[in-house]
Nucleic acid binder design. Structure first.
Lengths: 199, 199
DNA sequence: TAATCAATACGGGGCGTCTCGTTTCACTTC
DNA sequence: GAAGTGAAACGAGACGCCCCGTATTGATTA
Protein backbone atom coordinates (compact mmCIF):
# COMPACT_ATOMS: atom_id res chain seq x y z
CA UNK A 1 0.00 0.00 0.00
CA UNK A 2 1.69 3.19 -1.16
CA UNK A 3 -0.20 5.38 1.32
CA UNK A 4 2.18 7.80 2.98
CA UNK A 5 0.02 10.00 5.14
CA UNK A 6 -3.16 10.66 7.01
CA UNK A 7 -5.71 8.42 8.66
CA UNK A 8 -5.81 4.99 7.13
CA UNK A 9 -9.42 4.21 6.49
CA UNK A 10 -8.30 2.63 3.29
CA UNK A 11 -8.73 -0.99 4.26
CA UNK A 12 -12.47 -0.71 4.67
CA UNK A 13 -12.82 1.61 1.70
CA UNK A 14 -10.93 -0.61 -0.64
CA UNK A 15 -12.80 -3.74 0.30
CA UNK A 16 -16.21 -2.22 -0.31
CA UNK A 17 -14.95 -0.61 -3.52
CA UNK A 18 -13.89 -3.97 -4.85
CA UNK A 19 -17.14 -5.57 -3.69
CA UNK A 20 -19.16 -2.93 -5.56
CA UNK A 21 -17.20 -3.34 -8.78
CA UNK A 22 -17.34 -7.13 -8.60
CA UNK A 23 -21.07 -7.11 -7.95
CA UNK A 24 -21.60 -4.77 -10.89
CA UNK A 25 -19.62 -6.98 -13.21
CA UNK A 26 -21.47 -10.08 -12.04
CA UNK A 27 -24.89 -8.51 -12.51
CA UNK A 28 -24.13 -7.00 -15.91
CA UNK A 29 -22.73 -10.33 -17.07
CA UNK A 30 -25.64 -12.44 -15.95
CA UNK A 31 -28.72 -10.29 -16.53
CA UNK A 32 -30.21 -8.08 -19.18
CA UNK A 33 -28.82 -4.61 -18.69
CA UNK A 34 -32.19 -3.05 -17.84
CA UNK A 35 -32.33 -5.37 -14.84
CA UNK A 36 -29.07 -4.04 -13.45
CA UNK A 37 -30.10 -1.47 -10.85
CA UNK A 38 -28.04 0.43 -8.34
CA UNK A 39 -30.10 -1.14 -5.60
CA UNK A 40 -29.28 -4.61 -6.90
CA UNK A 41 -25.60 -3.75 -7.02
CA UNK A 42 -25.70 -2.48 -3.45
CA UNK A 43 -27.54 -5.57 -2.25
CA UNK A 44 -25.16 -7.96 -4.04
CA UNK A 45 -22.11 -6.10 -2.76
CA UNK A 46 -23.51 -5.94 0.78
CA UNK A 47 -23.14 -2.17 0.93
CA UNK A 48 -25.50 0.76 1.27
CA UNK A 49 -26.46 2.80 -1.77
CA UNK A 50 -24.83 5.85 -0.26
CA UNK A 51 -21.50 4.06 -0.21
CA UNK A 52 -21.82 3.70 -3.96
CA UNK A 53 -22.87 7.29 -4.56
CA UNK A 54 -20.04 8.51 -2.35
CA UNK A 55 -17.62 7.16 -4.97
CA UNK A 56 -19.37 7.48 -8.33
CA UNK A 57 -21.78 10.12 -9.56
CA UNK A 58 -24.07 7.96 -11.69
CA UNK A 59 -24.95 4.48 -12.77
CA UNK A 60 -23.03 4.92 -16.03
CA UNK A 61 -19.91 5.79 -14.09
CA UNK A 62 -20.26 2.70 -11.91
CA UNK A 63 -20.63 0.38 -14.89
CA UNK A 64 -17.72 2.01 -16.64
CA UNK A 65 -15.49 1.81 -13.58
CA UNK A 66 -16.39 -1.85 -13.16
CA UNK A 67 -15.22 -2.70 -16.67
CA UNK A 68 -12.20 -0.45 -16.40
CA UNK A 69 -11.09 -2.28 -13.27
CA UNK A 70 -11.38 -5.54 -15.19
CA UNK A 71 -8.74 -4.47 -17.67
CA UNK A 72 -6.53 -2.96 -14.99
CA UNK A 73 -6.15 -6.39 -13.45
CA UNK A 74 -4.47 -7.77 -16.53
CA UNK A 75 -2.70 -4.44 -16.91
CA UNK A 76 0.33 -3.16 -15.01
CA UNK A 77 2.72 -4.45 -17.57
CA UNK A 78 1.60 -3.30 -20.98
CA UNK A 79 -0.18 -5.68 -23.32
CA UNK A 80 1.62 -7.09 -26.32
CA UNK A 81 0.50 -9.04 -29.36
CA UNK A 82 2.29 -12.22 -30.43
CA UNK A 83 5.16 -11.57 -32.82
CA UNK A 84 6.45 -14.76 -34.42
CA UNK A 85 7.61 -12.91 -37.52
CA UNK A 86 4.65 -14.24 -39.50
CA UNK A 87 2.18 -11.33 -39.61
CA UNK A 88 -0.65 -13.28 -41.21
CA UNK A 89 -0.49 -16.10 -38.67
CA UNK A 90 -0.22 -13.69 -35.74
CA UNK A 91 -3.16 -11.60 -36.86
CA UNK A 92 -5.34 -14.62 -37.53
CA UNK A 93 -4.59 -15.90 -34.05
CA UNK A 94 -5.61 -12.59 -32.51
CA UNK A 95 -8.68 -12.11 -34.68
CA UNK A 96 -9.94 -15.62 -34.02
CA UNK A 97 -9.53 -15.05 -30.29
CA UNK A 98 -11.36 -11.74 -30.53
CA UNK A 99 -14.23 -13.32 -32.45
CA UNK A 100 -14.53 -16.04 -29.82
CA UNK A 101 -14.53 -13.50 -27.05
CA UNK A 102 -17.48 -11.66 -28.58
CA UNK A 103 -19.37 -14.92 -28.86
CA UNK A 104 -19.30 -15.40 -25.09
CA UNK A 105 -22.70 -14.37 -23.63
CA UNK A 106 -21.25 -12.77 -20.49
CA UNK A 107 -18.73 -10.75 -22.44
CA UNK A 108 -21.44 -9.87 -24.93
CA UNK A 109 -23.69 -8.39 -22.26
CA UNK A 110 -20.76 -6.58 -20.66
CA UNK A 111 -19.59 -4.87 -23.83
CA UNK A 112 -23.10 -4.18 -25.00
CA UNK A 113 -23.81 -2.36 -21.75
CA UNK A 114 -20.60 -0.41 -22.10
CA UNK A 115 -21.43 0.56 -25.67
CA UNK A 116 -24.90 1.69 -24.68
CA UNK A 117 -23.47 4.04 -22.09
CA UNK A 118 -20.67 5.23 -24.33
CA UNK A 119 -22.85 5.91 -27.33
CA UNK A 120 -24.89 8.48 -25.46
CA UNK A 121 -22.20 10.09 -23.32
CA UNK A 122 -19.35 11.79 -25.14
CA UNK A 123 -17.32 12.37 -21.97
CA UNK A 124 -17.51 8.71 -21.03
CA UNK A 125 -16.60 7.81 -24.60
CA UNK A 126 -13.46 9.93 -24.38
CA UNK A 127 -12.44 8.28 -21.12
CA UNK A 128 -13.16 4.87 -22.66
CA UNK A 129 -10.92 5.64 -25.58
CA UNK A 130 -8.13 6.98 -23.41
CA UNK A 131 -8.07 4.25 -20.79
CA UNK A 132 -9.17 1.14 -22.63
CA UNK A 133 -8.91 1.53 -26.37
CA UNK A 134 -5.67 3.43 -26.80
CA UNK A 135 -3.42 1.10 -24.80
CA UNK A 136 -4.74 -1.83 -26.82
CA UNK A 137 -4.34 0.02 -30.09
CA UNK A 138 -0.80 0.93 -29.17
CA UNK A 139 0.02 -2.75 -28.78
CA UNK A 140 -1.59 -3.58 -32.11
CA UNK A 141 0.24 -0.75 -33.84
CA UNK A 142 3.52 -1.93 -32.38
CA UNK A 143 2.95 -5.31 -34.01
CA UNK A 144 2.07 -3.65 -37.30
CA UNK A 145 5.17 -1.46 -37.17
CA UNK A 146 7.26 -4.54 -36.67
CA UNK A 147 5.62 -5.96 -39.79
CA UNK A 148 6.39 -2.79 -41.70
CA UNK A 149 10.04 -3.09 -40.70
CA UNK A 150 9.99 -6.70 -41.90
CA UNK A 151 8.56 -5.60 -45.22
CA UNK A 152 5.32 -7.51 -44.70
CA UNK A 153 3.19 -4.37 -44.71
CA UNK A 154 3.20 -1.18 -46.78
CA UNK A 155 5.63 1.14 -44.99
CA UNK A 156 3.43 4.16 -45.77
CA UNK A 157 0.19 2.61 -44.53
CA UNK A 158 -1.88 4.61 -42.04
CA UNK A 159 -1.97 2.23 -39.09
CA UNK A 160 -5.18 3.72 -37.69
CA UNK A 161 -6.83 2.89 -40.97
CA UNK A 162 -5.33 -0.60 -41.02
CA UNK A 163 -6.74 -1.32 -37.57
CA UNK A 164 -10.15 0.01 -38.55
CA UNK A 165 -10.32 -2.15 -41.66
CA UNK A 166 -9.25 -5.13 -39.61
CA UNK A 167 -11.52 -4.74 -36.57
CA UNK A 168 -14.48 -2.53 -37.52
CA UNK A 169 -16.21 -5.17 -39.67
CA UNK A 170 -16.01 -7.68 -36.82
CA UNK A 171 -17.30 -5.12 -34.35
CA UNK A 172 -20.18 -4.06 -36.57
CA UNK A 173 -21.17 -7.64 -37.31
CA UNK A 174 -21.27 -8.29 -33.60
CA UNK A 175 -23.12 -5.09 -32.68
CA UNK A 176 -25.80 -5.55 -35.32
CA UNK A 177 -25.82 -9.35 -35.11
CA UNK A 178 -25.60 -9.31 -38.89
CA UNK A 179 -23.61 -12.48 -39.36
CA UNK A 180 -21.63 -15.29 -37.71
CA UNK A 181 -18.34 -14.49 -35.96
CA UNK A 182 -16.62 -17.63 -37.19
CA UNK A 183 -12.93 -18.41 -37.44
CA UNK A 184 -13.33 -18.38 -41.20
CA UNK A 185 -14.67 -14.86 -41.03
CA UNK A 186 -11.84 -13.74 -38.76
CA UNK A 187 -9.35 -15.20 -41.22
CA UNK A 188 -10.93 -13.50 -44.19
CA UNK A 189 -10.70 -10.10 -42.46
CA UNK A 190 -6.96 -10.66 -42.07
CA UNK A 191 -6.71 -11.71 -45.74
CA UNK A 192 -8.56 -8.61 -46.87
CA UNK A 193 -6.43 -6.32 -44.74
CA UNK A 194 -3.20 -7.84 -45.97
CA UNK A 195 -4.36 -7.59 -49.57
CA UNK A 196 -5.18 -3.93 -49.09
CA UNK A 197 -2.05 -2.98 -47.16
CA UNK A 198 0.38 -5.65 -48.21
CA UNK A 199 3.77 -4.64 -49.66
CA UNK B 1 -50.70 19.25 -41.62
CA UNK B 2 -52.87 19.34 -44.75
CA UNK B 3 -55.36 16.55 -45.15
CA UNK B 4 -55.96 15.55 -48.74
CA UNK B 5 -58.70 13.05 -47.99
CA UNK B 6 -61.89 15.04 -48.30
CA UNK B 7 -64.36 12.25 -47.54
CA UNK B 8 -65.11 11.31 -43.94
CA UNK B 9 -63.78 7.86 -44.66
CA UNK B 10 -60.64 8.12 -42.57
CA UNK B 11 -60.96 9.28 -39.03
CA UNK B 12 -58.50 11.16 -36.90
CA UNK B 13 -56.33 8.06 -36.83
CA UNK B 14 -53.93 8.94 -39.59
CA UNK B 15 -53.44 12.54 -38.57
CA UNK B 16 -52.58 11.70 -34.99
CA UNK B 17 -50.34 8.85 -36.17
CA UNK B 18 -48.32 11.25 -38.28
CA UNK B 19 -48.27 13.82 -35.47
CA UNK B 20 -46.88 11.22 -33.06
CA UNK B 21 -44.13 10.11 -35.43
CA UNK B 22 -43.20 13.68 -36.32
CA UNK B 23 -43.08 14.69 -32.65
CA UNK B 24 -40.88 11.70 -31.87
CA UNK B 25 -38.45 12.54 -34.65
CA UNK B 26 -38.33 16.17 -33.58
CA UNK B 27 -37.65 15.33 -29.95
CA UNK B 28 -35.03 12.70 -30.67
CA UNK B 29 -33.30 15.07 -33.09
CA UNK B 30 -33.15 18.01 -30.73
CA UNK B 31 -32.61 16.54 -27.28
CA UNK B 32 -30.44 14.02 -25.54
CA UNK B 33 -32.14 10.66 -25.84
CA UNK B 34 -32.73 10.26 -22.12
CA UNK B 35 -34.93 13.35 -22.25
CA UNK B 36 -37.21 11.82 -24.86
CA UNK B 37 -40.17 10.49 -22.88
CA UNK B 38 -43.48 9.14 -24.03
CA UNK B 39 -45.19 11.94 -22.12
CA UNK B 40 -43.13 14.53 -23.98
CA UNK B 41 -44.01 12.92 -27.30
CA UNK B 42 -47.71 12.94 -26.42
CA UNK B 43 -47.58 16.58 -25.35
CA UNK B 44 -45.69 17.67 -28.46
CA UNK B 45 -48.05 15.74 -30.72
CA UNK B 46 -51.12 17.07 -28.92
CA UNK B 47 -52.22 13.54 -28.21
CA UNK B 48 -53.07 11.45 -25.19
CA UNK B 49 -50.65 8.81 -24.04
CA UNK B 50 -53.23 6.15 -24.60
CA UNK B 51 -53.43 7.07 -28.28
CA UNK B 52 -49.74 6.24 -28.51
CA UNK B 53 -50.00 2.97 -26.64
CA UNK B 54 -52.98 1.96 -28.78
CA UNK B 55 -50.61 1.83 -31.73
CA UNK B 56 -47.20 0.80 -30.39
CA UNK B 57 -46.30 -1.52 -27.51
CA UNK B 58 -43.26 0.28 -26.16
CA UNK B 59 -41.08 3.32 -26.38
CA UNK B 60 -38.50 1.44 -28.46
CA UNK B 61 -41.18 0.56 -30.98
CA UNK B 62 -42.28 4.19 -31.26
CA UNK B 63 -38.76 5.44 -31.88
CA UNK B 64 -38.16 2.72 -34.40
CA UNK B 65 -41.41 3.39 -36.23
CA UNK B 66 -40.59 7.09 -36.34
CA UNK B 67 -37.29 6.45 -38.07
CA UNK B 68 -38.78 3.77 -40.30
CA UNK B 69 -41.42 6.24 -41.52
CA UNK B 70 -38.62 8.65 -42.37
CA UNK B 71 -37.09 6.22 -44.82
CA UNK B 72 -40.46 5.18 -46.22
CA UNK B 73 -41.02 8.75 -47.37
CA UNK B 74 -38.04 8.64 -49.69
CA UNK B 75 -38.92 5.05 -50.50
CA UNK B 76 -41.70 3.72 -52.70
CA UNK B 77 -39.48 3.41 -55.70
CA UNK B 78 -36.47 1.35 -54.68
CA UNK B 79 -33.21 3.10 -53.94
CA UNK B 80 -30.36 2.92 -56.41
CA UNK B 81 -26.75 4.00 -56.26
CA UNK B 82 -25.26 6.07 -59.08
CA UNK B 83 -23.74 3.97 -61.84
CA UNK B 84 -21.64 6.04 -64.22
CA UNK B 85 -19.45 3.07 -65.06
CA UNK B 86 -16.64 4.45 -62.88
CA UNK B 87 -16.82 2.41 -59.67
CA UNK B 88 -14.25 4.44 -57.78
CA UNK B 89 -15.93 7.75 -58.55
CA UNK B 90 -19.40 6.41 -57.74
CA UNK B 91 -18.33 4.92 -54.42
CA UNK B 92 -16.46 8.04 -53.37
CA UNK B 93 -19.54 10.11 -54.11
CA UNK B 94 -21.69 7.84 -51.94
CA UNK B 95 -19.16 7.54 -49.13
CA UNK B 96 -18.61 11.27 -48.95
CA UNK B 97 -22.36 11.81 -48.77
CA UNK B 98 -22.64 9.20 -46.03
CA UNK B 99 -19.85 10.80 -44.02
CA UNK B 100 -21.54 14.20 -44.29
CA UNK B 101 -24.84 12.74 -43.19
CA UNK B 102 -23.30 11.36 -40.02
CA UNK B 103 -21.78 14.74 -39.27
CA UNK B 104 -25.21 16.34 -39.00
CA UNK B 105 -26.16 16.70 -35.31
CA UNK B 106 -29.84 15.87 -35.80
CA UNK B 107 -29.08 12.78 -37.82
CA UNK B 108 -26.41 11.88 -35.29
CA UNK B 109 -28.86 11.90 -32.38
CA UNK B 110 -31.46 10.04 -34.42
CA UNK B 111 -29.18 7.17 -35.40
CA UNK B 112 -27.57 7.05 -31.99
CA UNK B 113 -30.99 6.58 -30.41
CA UNK B 114 -31.80 3.85 -32.91
CA UNK B 115 -28.53 2.07 -32.21
CA UNK B 116 -29.11 2.22 -28.48
CA UNK B 117 -32.46 0.48 -28.85
CA UNK B 118 -31.17 -2.01 -31.39
CA UNK B 119 -28.13 -2.97 -29.41
CA UNK B 120 -30.23 -4.20 -26.49
CA UNK B 121 -33.18 -5.70 -28.34
CA UNK B 122 -32.47 -8.55 -30.73
CA UNK B 123 -36.01 -8.59 -32.13
CA UNK B 124 -35.87 -4.90 -32.98
CA UNK B 125 -32.44 -5.44 -34.50
CA UNK B 126 -33.85 -8.09 -36.80
CA UNK B 127 -36.66 -5.80 -37.91
CA UNK B 128 -34.16 -3.01 -38.42
CA UNK B 129 -32.06 -5.22 -40.63
CA UNK B 130 -35.02 -6.44 -42.62
CA UNK B 131 -36.75 -3.13 -43.21
CA UNK B 132 -33.96 -0.59 -43.31
CA UNK B 133 -30.59 -2.23 -43.83
CA UNK B 134 -31.33 -4.94 -46.36
CA UNK B 135 -33.04 -2.74 -48.98
CA UNK B 136 -30.07 -0.39 -48.83
CA UNK B 137 -27.59 -3.23 -49.00
CA UNK B 138 -29.41 -4.69 -51.96
CA UNK B 139 -28.93 -1.42 -53.82
CA UNK B 140 -25.26 -1.32 -52.88
CA UNK B 141 -24.75 -4.92 -53.96
CA UNK B 142 -26.45 -4.23 -57.27
CA UNK B 143 -23.89 -1.52 -57.95
CA UNK B 144 -21.07 -3.86 -56.95
CA UNK B 145 -22.37 -6.62 -59.17
CA UNK B 146 -22.43 -4.20 -62.07
CA UNK B 147 -18.78 -3.46 -61.28
CA UNK B 148 -18.00 -7.17 -61.23
CA UNK B 149 -19.56 -7.53 -64.68
CA UNK B 150 -17.45 -4.62 -65.88
CA UNK B 151 -14.34 -6.30 -64.53
CA UNK B 152 -13.67 -3.54 -62.01
CA UNK B 153 -14.10 -5.83 -59.03
CA UNK B 154 -13.00 -9.38 -58.25
CA UNK B 155 -15.79 -11.59 -59.62
CA UNK B 156 -15.42 -14.00 -56.70
CA UNK B 157 -15.55 -11.35 -54.00
CA UNK B 158 -18.04 -11.85 -51.15
CA UNK B 159 -20.16 -8.73 -51.50
CA UNK B 160 -21.25 -8.80 -47.86
CA UNK B 161 -17.60 -8.64 -46.91
CA UNK B 162 -16.91 -5.86 -49.40
CA UNK B 163 -19.71 -3.75 -47.92
CA UNK B 164 -18.46 -4.37 -44.41
CA UNK B 165 -14.92 -3.32 -45.25
CA UNK B 166 -16.28 -0.24 -46.97
CA UNK B 167 -18.79 0.94 -44.38
CA UNK B 168 -17.91 -0.58 -41.00
CA UNK B 169 -14.83 1.61 -40.41
CA UNK B 170 -16.89 4.74 -41.06
CA UNK B 171 -19.64 3.51 -38.79
CA UNK B 172 -17.26 2.61 -35.99
CA UNK B 173 -15.41 5.91 -36.24
CA UNK B 174 -18.73 7.71 -35.95
CA UNK B 175 -20.09 5.55 -33.12
CA UNK B 176 -16.94 5.87 -31.01
CA UNK B 177 -16.14 9.40 -32.14
CA UNK B 178 -12.63 8.14 -32.75
CA UNK B 179 -11.71 10.37 -35.67
CA UNK B 180 -12.91 12.90 -38.25
CA UNK B 181 -15.41 11.84 -40.90
CA UNK B 182 -13.76 13.87 -43.64
CA UNK B 183 -14.05 13.53 -47.39
CA UNK B 184 -10.43 12.43 -47.40
CA UNK B 185 -11.28 9.63 -45.02
CA UNK B 186 -14.27 8.57 -47.11
CA UNK B 187 -12.04 8.46 -50.17
CA UNK B 188 -9.39 6.40 -48.46
CA UNK B 189 -11.96 3.79 -47.46
CA UNK B 190 -12.91 3.43 -51.11
CA UNK B 191 -9.23 3.18 -52.06
CA UNK B 192 -8.62 0.48 -49.46
CA UNK B 193 -11.66 -1.50 -50.53
CA UNK B 194 -10.74 -1.36 -54.19
CA UNK B 195 -7.19 -2.39 -53.42
CA UNK B 196 -8.45 -5.37 -51.44
CA UNK B 197 -11.13 -6.47 -53.89
CA UNK B 198 -9.91 -5.01 -57.15
CA UNK B 199 -9.46 -7.28 -60.18
C1' DT C 1 -75.41 6.27 -30.52
C1' DA C 2 -70.83 4.35 -30.86
C1' DA C 3 -66.02 5.10 -31.60
C1' DT C 4 -62.40 7.60 -30.83
C1' DC C 5 -60.09 10.89 -28.60
C1' DA C 6 -57.27 14.22 -24.97
C1' DA C 7 -56.47 14.47 -20.47
C1' DT C 8 -55.25 12.75 -16.38
C1' DA C 9 -55.09 9.65 -12.29
C1' DC C 10 -52.74 5.61 -10.90
C1' DG C 11 -49.58 1.61 -9.65
C1' DG C 12 -44.95 0.02 -10.25
C1' DG C 13 -40.25 0.73 -10.12
C1' DG C 14 -35.63 2.88 -10.63
C1' DC C 15 -32.57 6.93 -9.58
C1' DG C 16 -30.24 9.72 -6.52
C1' DT C 17 -30.74 12.15 -1.74
C1' DC C 18 -31.30 12.09 3.03
C1' DT C 19 -31.46 10.29 7.67
C1' DC C 20 -30.38 7.18 11.37
C1' DG C 21 -28.17 4.16 14.29
C1' DT C 22 -23.87 1.30 14.08
C1' DT C 23 -19.04 0.02 13.16
C1' DT C 24 -14.33 1.13 12.54
C1' DC C 25 -10.12 3.35 13.57
C1' DA C 26 -6.68 7.00 14.94
C1' DC C 27 -5.75 9.03 18.85
C1' DT C 28 -5.87 9.68 23.64
C1' DT C 29 -5.52 8.60 28.67
C1' DC C 30 -4.62 5.63 32.08
C1' DG D 1 -0.50 -2.06 26.46
C1' DA D 2 -5.71 -1.69 27.62
C1' DA D 3 -9.64 1.00 27.86
C1' DG D 4 -11.99 4.99 26.25
C1' DT D 5 -13.44 8.76 22.73
C1' DG D 6 -14.91 11.33 18.69
C1' DA D 7 -15.28 11.50 13.86
C1' DA D 8 -15.47 9.42 9.60
C1' DA D 9 -17.37 5.81 7.02
C1' DC D 10 -20.78 2.59 6.92
C1' DG D 11 -25.48 -0.61 6.04
C1' DA D 12 -30.06 -0.04 5.77
C1' DG D 13 -33.72 1.87 3.86
C1' DA D 14 -37.30 5.79 3.63
C1' DC D 15 -38.17 9.47 0.56
C1' DG D 16 -39.23 12.56 -3.49
C1' DC D 17 -38.96 12.63 -8.20
C1' DC D 18 -39.67 11.11 -12.72
C1' DC D 19 -40.99 7.86 -16.15
C1' DC D 20 -43.41 3.79 -18.00
C1' DG D 21 -47.56 1.60 -19.21
C1' DT D 22 -52.72 0.96 -17.73
C1' DA D 23 -57.31 2.48 -16.54
C1' DT D 24 -60.87 5.93 -16.34
C1' DT D 25 -63.62 9.86 -17.74
C1' DG D 26 -65.90 13.30 -20.08
C1' DA D 27 -65.72 15.61 -24.68
C1' DT D 28 -65.69 15.28 -29.71
C1' DT D 29 -66.77 13.30 -33.94
C1' DA D 30 -69.04 10.32 -37.38
Amino acid sequence: MPNEKGPDHSRRKERSRQAILAATRALVAEEAYEKVTVEAIAARAGVGKQTIYRRWPSKSAIVFAALLALSEDTDGQSVALPDTGDLEADLKLVMRATAEEFADPSFDRLIRALNTEISNDAALAAEYREKLVQPLEAAKKARLRSAQDAGQLDADADLDLVLEVLYAPLFQRWLHRSGPLSATYADSLVDVTLRAFGP
